[in-house]
Design a protein around this nucleic acid. Sequence first.
DNA 1: CGGCTGATCGTG
DNA 2: ACGATCAGCCGA
Length: 199
Amino acid sequence: MGRLSQDFFIDDAIEVAKKLLGKILVHETPEGTTKCRIVETEAYMGVLDKGSHAYSGKVTPRTATLYEQGGVAYVYLIYGMYHCMNVVVNVKGLAQGVLIRALEPLEGIELMKKRRKMDKVKNLCNGPGKLCIAMDITKKENGVNLMSSSLFLEEDEKEEPFEIVSAKRINIDYAEEAKDFLWRFYIKDTPYVSVKSKE
DNA sequence: CGGCTGATCGTG
DNA sequence: ACGATCAGCCGA
């Protein structure tokens, strides 16, 4: 159905972070298909953003994907145990990305429960590491095209109106003044957010 | 090479 | 509040 197209991704990370709320993330695997609604995101604005992996223009084998043209996935390992997924956005070279922080499970819930070894639907995808386990997103998905691969984004056919809340990004204490920027966005009153808001 | 660190999570 | 756990980055 309505997959997101190229122009959706060619925009500032802050704009795309807000536009992605309410959109559907789908992963088709041999085990089955999982489908979730995006309820929480964070914008990483690239080489000038002290919170970003691309700060100061640093390019490494890991971060190279961030410098691609918008519309691909940037997936990396964190704390030696978990994966996090970004949607790479904007034109090639800016290294902007949107971290997917929390999802509302829609389809493939039994499969996600099995992968997470967890029965509470509210806790299946309420964190960036958790949602990657639930949807089986790993470094295999690093660099894949989110318009044409088995991991993709689509419109919500029956989207209800919602309010967007802005907040400080999570766990980037090293980012100096950038840690206070309100570049985290989530759907107001959703029970599926990752951490409680502190303001 | 060797040492440090992290866009996290589950348990207690 | 804390430990798990290790790829990736950096300095030597």
